[in-house]
Design a protein around this nucleic acid. Structure first.
Lengths: 221, 221
DNA sequence: AAATATTTTTAGACAAATCTAAATTATTAT
DNA sequence: ATAATAATTTAGATTTGTCTAAAAATATTT
């Protein structure tokens, strides 16, 4: 495995996360994610294509190659192991770990990470509940959880609905939700446990606690 | 405390180490230390001077300002805490820790480092026996050790000689060693525990086990 | 399907960090 | 003290990663 610059790694990681949701990633999407200008994205896409880390044809969007996915999973492994370390050993709170891990993840010694993994007792999920890839880049994909428990901004696919009543189906139909619909939780309100959810590029809409209780979703890395 | 680039940090750290020995550091010395070309050194010295991290006049060499020293001690603190972590917790051997710590030291979250320090139990020296600066940049300077125990390439000053015989003085005089002489151990031979030592810019010379046993030195960071 | 709007790419500029080669300053040796 | 040598700096080029503004391609609307 070659070494990549911090910049390259950040692009690869961002593409990985975006393509979990959309399959094919666009220039503007990635620019928004990385808070960079579209022109910068195009520049880097050419570079990453030349390194065979992604598939890219001008104007057609892009997606990681198998090699690119392997690199991404390595970065995610480092990130999540550091998050676990920070929370578990250094007693950071869950909302503090991400930023520091963003920096630690770019220290790319394989030995360091494998020894850290061992030291931590081979944890399977990070403090946010996201699965940690193993040495070979294998990751526990598709974890089914109740929509109530889905972390924010985590793309997930509706995989199961508990209640089979016509009433719930009427509601789901009205909200355009079927098995296979991609969702992302944007906000939760503790007052009534309702949540705001986004499906694809539709505007955000609200789901009540009673409804969320009955929806189960699968999500990956 | 502002943030500095990885490059800037590496220059600052190298100057700090060199000036422990020589006081004033020259362009070529630093170029050799960093494996860079002299022209690159000059460029960076201008930048660091502009940031008030060092004293520098063209052709006159340079040395860290108080602010520069504070920055250097912060980097050294991070480096040595990570070395301790790697050796103590991840079971790296003492010769493996340095390279990885070279990368980890540039992650500059103060909270991370202070929590790491606490997690490690506030260790006072790293696996090489070098003292670890505290939160305020205070470092245990001047540790007196037997020359036999002085680490390689660690500039030290002769502070005490046990034996008072005329024989040892004759030998010391011949080798030009007095209290205050700066030394650095370059090689040790397990066959007879003799060592090769450098004093200033004189050529390397040999000291026997019997002699080294009787020489004590003080050294800093 | 033409006009308009949006997205993406290209062209050219810039800052950081490095280099080479040439010019300058300092040091050393005769 | 002057010439030769060594050290240092300057000038200009290169690479990486970013940007702005303009051009080109695609998508949308009427």
């Amino acid at each position: 495995m070659l070494n990549y610059s911090t910049s390259e790694e950040n692009y690869i990681k961002a593409i990985y996360h975006l393509q979990q949701q959309d399959g094919n990633v666009t220039t503007n999407e990635l620019a928004a994610e990385l808070k960079a200008k579209p022109a910068s994205i195009t520049d880097m896409m050419k570079k990453l294509k030349a390194k065979k880390l992604l598939h890219y044809e001008p104007y057609q969007g892009f997606s990681l190659s198998n090699e690119g996915k392997k690199v991404a999973l390595g970065i995610i492994r480092r990130h999540r192991l550091w998050e676990y370390f920070l929370a578990e050993k250094l007693k950071f709170t869950w909302d503090e770990v991400h930023e520091v891990a963003e920096h630690l993840e770019h220290v790319s010694s394989k030995k360091l990470i494998d020894k850290l993994d061992e030291f931590l007792g081979f944890p399977r999920v990070d403090p946010h509940g996201d699965p940690i890839p193993d040495q070979d880049g294998k990751i526990e994909t598709s974890r089914q959880v109740c929509l109530l428990d889905l972390p924010f901004n985590k793309a997930a696919v509706v995989s199961h609905v508990s209640d089979q009543s016509t009433e719930i189906l009427e509601l789901l139909k009205h909200k355009n939700i079927v098995i296979g619909t991609k969702l992302e939780v944007k906000k939760k309100f503790s007052f009534d446990n309702s949540m705001e959810v986004k499906a694809g590029r539709q505007p955000v809409f609200t789901i009540s606690e009673q409804l969320a209780k009955n929806i189960f979703v699968k999500y990956g890395a």
